[in-house]
Nucleic acid binder design. Structure first.
Lengths: 342, 342
DNA sequence: ATGAAAGCGCTAACAT
DNA sequence: ATGTTAGCGCTTTCAT
């Protein structure tokens, strides 16, 4: 097992610069109590010698841990990989390291990962991904995280309102509303929703937005077919088969994320159903491939990369008296998968 | 800045179990010098109390760091996010944490990240992504990494042969050959290559495979147009414009990765050029959306997720006398973007 | 087989 | 403004 490298120590730098250990420490961590002059010299020497602090010693001695823990459902899901990209980008700029782990959309696995991150004494934790509608389900995670915060850890979440932590909140409801309006405006009246499992708040929020749009136009949301399948591509395929069989008069399908929309398009293609001529399809997220599908996908753009950056940015600031909430904004991107109702 | 958690310490466990600190340490790290009986009791107590070792203290005292550093070009590139997914997956199973960072296809940035990983004393480093054709360019990285290995660090690379470390090697040349054969078999004689920058070994290797296939069929590779643009989607668009303008007789385009192929398809669509009727297109990698493009993309499948797992697996084994090399294998996936030459 | 004690490299009081 | 020193929690000699 790995022994650390050669080990140039702070004391070596201090000696070379002709100052004490403490002074060197202060100079390098930019704390005050050192004259500019001396501080500059120390920094100079440290640079020349190529000194890099040992983070283990530093953290053990009570300094701040400079690593941020990121929990995502799955990195190889474009939604999360773009968020992760944003976090890593900003972390890089701040010379922070990012520890990343999967929760696999499984609350107990998520809890394990969070525990492990805390055990590693990371100073910042970012939890990305939908929360769970049933408060019971994430109760343990919430408890562990709030203890973590009380102990001085910084926490930011992306896409969950239930946690009383700094949060980046995607415009799920407003986006759903925009999608509904878009289709209604095109004359669609028989709209079906391809939703992920109702256990996810992301799903319920987006649905609520769509329902609101329908009500706003005098339509009855309750009459609208809602298919709850897995919140992934395959779920979109399955749901589409059901729609085709059970709701043949449908002229537009709202998939609650782009992954599902891709499944929908693929099933429609197999059935030779023209999009948008016979069926309009919309997604949600605007992952980068959405523009390259055929037909290119009408969807709601969420600034995923920025969301990652925003979350880390929040966590980098000292804790506020009340949790901060940052809305992401959204944008309806109209492409070729939607058209007027037949 | 974050103070560590409550801090249940090893000494607490030791006292509760009625043994010395040293014995407790030995028991928990599974070293010998403790009777089975005592060891069991300590482990029991530790479990009950929910003790988790402080990794900073442990590492500082000379133990092994249990985190693996992963360097990718860019996580929000599907090729890398799938690899990262594999690494994180296996790491999770082994209770290891993964620190991930971006090199942004920039050798100097890559060096910085590797240095930072080493400074963090990670026990394992995995470098994913193409190497550089000019040995000079990655000389510093190589040097730093080999020092790291000599100091006991474990290293595995994905997709670079130049480093004398354990390596997972994608079937770049064989894949290129398969692509060439496929198109030649369909009767194409005017084939153009949309390549990334020649500075990347991935690009040169894949090209070599294509060239070999042409020679094998009595065609002259030198006559084949090769467009060197950025190894990303946009590069594919740019190159396609050039082909359309300068090589109008082209009937098939080989893009050296799927991202570029997507750019090619998109440019072709804008020009209303039917695929595959007037132009066949192939990619390389088989990222998960390749099947969802329209037309769905003929490409070479590389097992990205497994590649991530394999790399970590190699690194987890003790160092061998000579570097191990693991080929990935590949598979030609024929879909709808290729057809007979007009 | 077990315990006592000496660090690992750093930060943070506490002096001066 | 600078230096001295006591830990941080653990692993690892060295005793026993």
């Amino acid at each position: 097992m790995p022994k650390p490298g050669p080990g140039l120590r702070l004391i070596d730098v201090a000696q070379r610069a002709g100052v004490s250990l403490a002074t060197a420490s202060r100079a390098l961590s930019g704390r005050d109590g050192v004259s500019e002059e001396v501080a500059d010299r120390v920094r100079q020497v440290s640079l020349e010698m190529g000194y890099v602090a040992n983070p283990y010693a530093r953290t053990l001695a009570g300094g701040a841990s400079s690593t941020v823990g990121l929990v995502v459902h799955q990195v190889d899901d474009p939604y999360f990989s773009e968020i992760a990209g944003g976090v890593i980008q900003l972390a890089g700029e701040q010379s922070l390291l990012v520890q990343i782990c999967h929760s696999g959309r499984d609350p107990s696995q998520e809890l394990r990962q969070i525990r492990s991150l805390i055990a590693q004494r990371v100073g910042i934790i970012i939890v990305a991904g939908s929360g769970y509608s049933d408060p019971q389900v994430e109760a343990s995670s919430r408890e562990v995280l709030s203890l973590y915060e009380r102990n001085g850890g910084r926490l930011a979440v992306i896409g969950r309102h239930s946690l009383s932590a700094d949060a980046v909140l995607p415009d799920n409801e407003a986006g759903g509303f925009a999608l509904g309006e878009h289709l209604i405006g095109l004359g669609h009246r028989n709209i079906a929703i391809v939703a992920g499992t109702a256990a996810l708040t992301t799903v319920t929020d987006r649905m609520a937005g769509v329902a609101a749009a329908m009500r706003a136009h005098g339509l009855d949301p309750a009459a609208m077919p809602v298919l709850h399948t897995d919140f992934i591509r395959e779920g979109g395929r399955v749901a589409t088969e059901q729609i085709l069989r059970d709701h043949p008069s449908t002229t537009a399908i709202i998939a609650l994320n782009d992954a599902m929309a891709m499944g929908v398009l693929s099933a429609l293609r197999e059935h030779d159903i023209a999009v948008p001529a016979r069926m309009s399809v919309v997604g949600f997220d605007d992952v980068s491939v959405a523009a390259d599908l055929a037909p290119s996908l009408t969807t709601i753009r969420l600034p995923m990369t920025d969301m990652g950056r925003m979350a880390l940015d929040l966590a980098l600031k000292p804790r506020a008296a009340r949790p901060r909430r940052r809305r992401t904004g959204h944008q309806l991107i109209v492409r070729d998968s939607t058209g007027p109702a037949a």
